[in-house]
Computed example of a mutant assay.
Amino acid sequence: MDTQLLQRGETIKLAVFDVDGVLTDGRLYFLEDGSEFKSFSTLDGQGIKMLIASGVATAIISGRKSPVVERRANNLGIAHLFQGREDKLVVLDGLLAELGLSYEQVAYLGDDLPDLPVIRRVGLGMAVANAAPFVREHAHGVTQARGGEGAAREFCELILRAQGNLDTALAAYL
Rank of each mutant, 00 (worst) to 15 (best):
M1D: 00
Q4V: 09
L6I: 03
G9H: 01
V16E: 14
D18R: 02
D18G: 08
T24F: 07
G26T: 02
R27M: 11
E32Q: 14
D33S: 12
S54T: 02
T58M: 11
G63S: 05
G63I: 02
R64V: 03
K65Q: 15
V68R: 15
E70L: 15
R71C: 12
R72W: 06
G77T: 03
I78L: 07
H80R: 11
F82H: 12
F82Q: 08
Q83K: 12
E86F: 14
V90C: 14
L92A: 02
G94S: 03
A97R: 15
A97V: 08
E98C: 12
G100P: 12
E104Q: 13
Q105F: 06
A107W: 04
L109Q: 13
R121L: 00
R121K: 15
V122E: 05
G123E: 13
L124A: 06
G125C: 06
A127D: 00
A129N: 13
N130P: 09
N130W: 04
N130F: 01
A131E: 00
A132E: 15
P133A: 04
P133V: 00
F134H: 13
V135Q: 11
H140E: 08
H140W: 03
A145N: 11
G147Q: 02
A151H: 02
A152L: 03
E157R: 00
I159A: 09
G164L: 10
A169I: 00
A172P: 01
A172E: 06
